[in-house]
């Protein structure tokens, strides 16, 4: 990177940390540190909700998915607005009016302490793990750019978030989220502009989208009823409804964001902000990947975007095989480029028959390229240097580093790192809150001073930050990162949602019923995950339904026995 890029990166990072630390003065009491004394305006809480989800995984993994797979992934978010309405009507008023710090605290009032502690523990495990995956995405990028060790890189990314979260609490997290969201949006549109401006003369954005469509990348809707297919209209509207209700309604990293709002209605409005903007924002993220693909239809891309793996293949025992693949790739690229140019020309001439002919030629060229790429990736895996190798996460960083002007590279690296930082900050803050409120204060020191709890909360934030770094190094080996995070969640989310459904919608549900139901729900998910090929999104439905059915049955028996 150029010195100017480094200057932008360092200056903004220092400013973000400094500004976070300035807010320490408002965070000297427990409700100030964890809930900002419920003083955050709805729009800031809403941006914070969105920023916590929009991680570096979105910037790297999802844009990469847009490149390789197109817009299909957007189906995953179809249920989100519906989930926001459901939660605004149901759980939000319960949480807000009960004055709790954590979502799980509410469960003790409704059921018992074991149900609260167990759900909170599940949150700590799943969110702690996903926090690691969130760190690993930018760690991969920085290790690519700087040639640093992955662990050192993960620490470099996590430390700023730990510092301002430790000292500034939720105030620092929320207001930093607002600033970072602006940087991310500017960064996303800068990449889109670079990809579009990089198209050859005579090829417009309409032609680009037409080329993308010829390769299936604008195919958004898949109405097949295949339960093993990860992203279909049905999994996105039914199964994902359960996931989003659980994520936004029972995951402390989200609940804590809107508990800081000034009133119940402001908390609701902060959630509805995501309902309006999440799908359009994800479309922008995926379209970015699609347009980078179109850019590389006309500008020669590397055979593999991972420069480290390319270098290994070029210099190792695989050198001759790789050289042959590169030659084949070059031929396939020229064929596809000529077909794409032909498609643009046919569109300009409004020649329907030629358009269809060229669309078919683009499809064939793309299939040839994908074939060579798959063999190159297989070569990496067979060479033993990375047996789980996936090139998806290297696409966007490579485009940024090689095709954006000086200054913008720094801005984009900043956007990626800060996207991770604000997500990590929000998650560390919520992990610390659940650790202290649901365990330390509940079981070990119920009557200590606010000062004591604050000190312990800061230590907990630091410890969770270190834990995230450890998981990050492991998660980087698991392939496309976006799916890693969702897989972690799906093992618990549906079951935890089931417990909250029992709490709110089943008046006769008892603590024993909820607890046994929760165990049954997790067992059901484990069984489905182990012995069937059902897509992970549907596991949320399985978990929630199992908890409600078993929980209701056991509650009925429990009440009968007591009578």
């Amino acid at each position: 990177m150029h010195a100017l890029d480094w200057a932008i990166l360092v200056a903004f990072t220092v400013w973000i940390v400094y500004d976070g630390l300035r807010r320490t003065k408002d965070s000297r009491e427990l409700d100030g540190y964890f809930l900002a004394k419920r003083s955050i305006p709805w729009w800031a809480a809403g941006i914070s909700v969105m920023a916590t989800q929009l991680s570096a995984i979105t910037m790297i993994g999802t844009t990469g998915q847009g490149y390789t797979d197109g817009l299909r992934f957007i189906q995953f978010y179809f249920a989100l607005p519906i989930a926001m309405i459901v939660l605004s009507v149901t759980l939000v008023p319960f949480f807000y009016k009960s004055g709790v710090y954590t979502a799980y605290e509410y469960l003790e009032g409704r059921f018992d302490s074991k149900t609260r502690s167990f759900t909170s523990l599940l949150f700590l495990v799943s969110r702690g793990m996903s926090c690691g995956a969130v760190v690993s995405a930018p760690a991969v990028v920085l290790s690519l750019v700087l040639g640093w060790d992955l662990t050192a890189t993960a620490l470099t990314i996590t430390v700023p978030a730990v510092i301002y979260t430790m000292f500034g609490g939720v105030q620092a997290v929320t207001w930093t989220d607002v600033k970072i969201m602006v940087i991310i949006i500017v960064g996303l549109f800068a990449v889109i502009a670079a990809a579009v401006l990089g198209l050859p003369p005579g090829v417009g954005i309409g032609d680009g989208l037409s080329i993308a469509a010829a390769t299936g990348r604008l195919r958004t809707f898949d109405f097949s009823l295949d339960l093993t297919n990860q992203y279909t209209f049905w999994s996105g509207t039914i199964a994902a409804l359960f996931l989003f209700c659980s994520y936004f309604g029972t995951d402390q990293s989200q609940v804590q964001r809107y508990l800081t709002a000034r009133s119940v209605d402001e908390a609701r409005h902060s959630l509805l902000m995501s309902a309006y903007w999440k799908i359009p924002l994800q479309v922008v993220v995926l379209i970015l990947g699609v347009l980078v693909f179109v850019f590389y239809v006309f500008t020669p891309p590397p055979l593999l975007f991972s420069s480290v793996q390319t270098e290994r293949l070029r210099t190792g025992a695989t050198a001759s095989s790789y050289e042959a693949l590169e030659r084949e790739f070059q031929t396939a690229f020229e064929t596809r480029r000529a077909a794409a140019q032909g498609l643009a020309d046919a569109r300009a001439a409004r020649d329907r028959a030629a358009i269809e002919r060229q669309q078919e030629a683009v499809r064939q060229g793309e299939a040839a390229i994908q074939g060579v790429r798959s063999r190159a990736a297989a070569l990496v895996r067979e060479s033993g240097s990375d047996r789980q190798f996936s090139d998806v996460n290297y696409i966007t960083p490579t485009f940024i580093l090689t095709h954006l002007p000086v200054g913008f590279v720094g801005l984009l690296m900043l956007a990626i790192i800060m996207a991770a930082t604000d997500t990590i900050a929000g998650e560390l803050n919520s992990l610390s809150t659940a650790t202290i409120i649901d365990f330390y204060k509940r079981w070990w020191r119920p009557a200590a001073s606010d000062g004591h709890y604050l000190a312990v909360s800061k230590i907990a934030t630091g410890v969770w930050g270190l834990f995230a770094c450890g998981v990050a190094v492991w998660a980087a080996e698991l392939g496309s990162l976006i799916e890693v995070v969702n897989r972690f969640g799906s093992f618990f989310y549906g079951s935890i949602l089931g417990v909250f459904i029992l709490a709110v919608a089943v008046p006769f549900a008892t603590g024993n019923g909820a607890f046994i139901g929760l165990i049954a729900g997790m067992g059901s998910v484990a069984w489905v995950a182990s012995f069937t090929r059902v897509a992970f999104l549907w596991q949320n439905v399985v978990g929630a339904v199992a908890v409600v059915i078993v929980g209701a049955l056991v509650s009925g028996i429990d009440r009968a026995v007591r009578r």
């Binding site: 817009l71 957007i74 179809f78 607005p81 519906i82 926001m84 309405i85 605004s88 009507v89 989208l209 037409s210 993308a212 469509a213 604008l218 195919r219 958004t220 809707f221 209605d265 609701r268 409005h269 509805l272 309902a275 309006y276 799908i279 359009p280 479309v283």
Partner: peptide, 30 residues
């Protein structure tokens, strides 16, 4: 109708329009 209910209806309208726009994009370029 309360202000919150009006907000929910607006969300549903925007949601339907967004999905329709995505479908139109898919069909227009196919």
């Amino acid at each position: 109708m309360s202000e919150m209910r009006r907000s929910y209806v607006r969300v549903l309208v925007v949601w339907a329009l967004t999905l329709a726009a995505l479908y139109a994009l898919q069909e227009f370029f196919s």
